[in-house]
Design a protein around this nucleic acid. Sequence first.
DNA 1: ATCGAATACATATGCACGTATATATTTGAG
DNA 2: CTCAAATATATACGTGCATATGTATTCGAT
Lengths: 156, 156
Amino acid sequence: MDMNVLSTPGHLISLAARGFARLSEARLKPLGFGVGHLPVLVALQDGRASTQRDLARFARVEQPPMAQMLARMERDGLIRRTPDPADGRSSLITLTERAEARLPDAVAVLLQGNDDVLRDFTDEEAGLLVTLLTRLIANLDRVAGAEASPGPERSS
Amino acid sequence: MDMNVLSTPGHLISLAARGFARLSEARLKPLGFGVGHLPVLVALQDGRASTQRDLARFARVEQPPMAQMLARMERDGLIRRTPDPADGRSSLITLTERAEARLPDAVAVLLQGNDDVLRDFTDEEAGLLVTLLTRLIANLDRVAGAEASPGPERSS
DNA sequence: ATCGAATACATATGCACGTATATATTTGAG
DNA sequence: CTCAAATATATACGTGCATATGTATTCGAT
């Protein structure tokens, strides 16, 4: 009975993430958005980021994936880039009116999706899930950071 | 304060999944495996599947991604395909000795990763997380199934 | 003021996943 | 027995993510 590895939180989280992504993707498509767009859209609208670098950090993805996503979003008329007058290497990114207009619907769709999937969860259970996930993510960051560092120098 | 959408279980699960995948990928690479290989490896070793179709179902991915992964795994010497004598369309897939020999280490690495990330979780908390995730995945399946169906015919 | 280091971004490559579609074999209704 | 439907796999294409690497601009120490 080696169902062990496939019952770990790690694998279950992967399954849940793919399921969530598929559902959200399907529901966002009519609005012209993809799931991955949301952190970018939110960050831009809230003024929490306006350069590619900041958006990548905010969305917690590497720079090249963010560059590609921004290229697609620009192509699809969701964002605009204007050269940064203060830094020739950088562009300032803004939402188009279309994107801004439809963002509230996208947010609503995602919140509804969460409700649908957590329908039989009590408020306590939902809150607990969020708490546990948040702690788990913090631990992941910690472990990843330690992994990247030179190492604990365990030898004498 | 629109940190709403990005604090939902859906988004947190996505973050957790990417973090877990990155960690596991890094640790499995020295063994010659990728995270996505595990369901395939486990299913093959346990005799729970031996055709591409069954492996796709077991791993809960679509057929084309599974076909591609099997092609890479064959290329990398993890699996072998032999024509199914009983069905000319199908191939029977088996683990190579190399893959079978290293699978226990891979499983150990993943279990260790889960331990590392859940280090400060009590057994109750870890169990609760698994329970909540399992329920959430079941709900996702339900919602996705309903989505695919003709629809509840809510109009008169 | 200049030149090397740091920084912002772009590009190339690979894996994993999805949808849409093609091809080949098997199956079953007649 | 034959041919259409079902089935198993393959292929093409788009997205998201990663690493590795190149290019251009800015910064900072001399």
